[in-house]
Amino acid sequence: MFDRLSFPQPWLSLTLFITWQILSDGVSGASVVLGLILAWLIPQLTRNFWPERPTFKKIWIMPGYVLRVLKDIVVASFSVAWLILSPRTPRPAFISYPLHLENPMAISVLASTISLTPGTVSADISNDRKILLIHALDAPSNQEVINDIYNRYEKPLLEMFQ
């Protein structure tokens, strides 16, 4: 299992290392050593669970994408809050979303984004990974929701991963 002293997923290792530095009380010699051990051990142990390594093409889009999602979470939270408090009954819908992404990692990022942004929850994915089932809390029209998700989230992910 530990066939060689390597970091099979450098990005995961880096994230783990930084996370450990934030978690421990200030950066010290001990936290750096333990951080390095964790950054090596965890990717080695979980190696078999990762489907295939995603190939990033334009990783520098990532920060902008994260900021946009955070902004959308805040903005759309207000609309969900408003919907909960207003007396009108929502118009929920199950929507089949045609996926353009192929990489499993990219699809799970998209599905998580859909679940996090208020108003939509990704419920299921078809066996051939072509269609994502989404439950929308209040959909004016299905096509609008599909276009919104494609333009706001899937397009940047397509650029990032493929």
Binding site: I84, S115, H135
Partner: peptide
Amino acid sequence: FYTRLHGPTKA
């Protein structure tokens, strides 16, 4: 149930 999923996960 499905609409109730939205409240807790988002707000």
